[in-house]
Amino acid sequence: MSKKKHPKSPLYHKNQKKSIGIAKQAINSTEPVENLCKTCAKQDKISGNPVDNQSSTCANPEENSENIVQKAQDSVQKPAKNPVQNSENAIKVTGLHKSFHLPTERASGLKQAIFNWLKGVKGYTEHKVLSGIDFEVKKGEFVGIVGRNGSGKSTLLKLLAQIYIPDSGKIEVNGTLVPFIELGVGFNPELTGRENVYLNGALLGFSNKEMDAMYDEIVHFAELEPFMDAKLKNYSSGMQVRLAFSIAIRARGDILILDEVLAVGDAEFQGKCNDYFASLHGGQTVILVTHSMENVRRFCDRAILIEQGKVAAEGSPEEVAKAYENLWQ
């Protein structure tokens, strides 16, 4: 926990400036798809990766669909090669296990607990959520994690974010990690918009001074200038999400973990989210948990399919997306 970068370190500030730049870029861009392709092309130039069918996110997926189905089925057995090679690990997970205690009878009271203890009843059953997860994320990679409801994605995410402690296994994190399990953590309906911005900022690790500097841009981006002194409970849900999102995209870390919560809101907001994802592509290490195979294909360098607490497939977005869609067949 003490590994986290000090807010005063020069890197922290550098990253922050970058974030403001990204926000501006996001406002100006009207065509998300075009923007994405530009970013992609740029990324390929920088990293010097061969743009083949599997690692390219720009290529039209329909073109080679026949070919890819074949590969996807193979990939369930053998993990595909890593598109970003010869690079340092950002995250390395080995043999991760996690189980939860589900209470069988009501054991939330002291009395019941004593009874259970006297009778030798455990009062809970063990529910295994993750049973041996191994994967690596290289620096600068955009990795998607997919899986059905209840497959253990969120648990994995919370383990990465250090909210849960693993039963066994190891998580090595190289750099600062900023998790977004949910937008607007700590938002309080009784506080004004302004107060909530500072509170949420503090939870993301920003100082008051840093928030002062960013405040106007956050409000401008959320398009909420006239409402900042109104209480949050008087905001519409869309306004709340917009405010939370504009704060969230300011957060900078070496590794960003994004849950699918970012995929809410209307079409315009979706556009902003997509611009944001696209802006992260290239350089920023991102782990995106999503149900949208469209997003996996568009943004991810690599994807991981989690099924029943295990890595069921790992490889190019296309392969994993197919494997995911095959789960229901």
Binding site: K4, H6, N188, E195, L199, L203, G205, S207
Partner: peptide
């Protein structure tokens, strides 16, 4: 010792402010 860490201090400050503001809200 972590209580001296700036990030935790900021968070503590904001939470105290929030609690105090909400205390007699309304």
């Amino acid at each position: 010792p972590n209580i001296l860490c700036q990030k935790n201090r900021i968070l503590l400050g904001e939470l105290v402010k929030t609690d105090f503001k909400l205390r007699y809200q309304g």
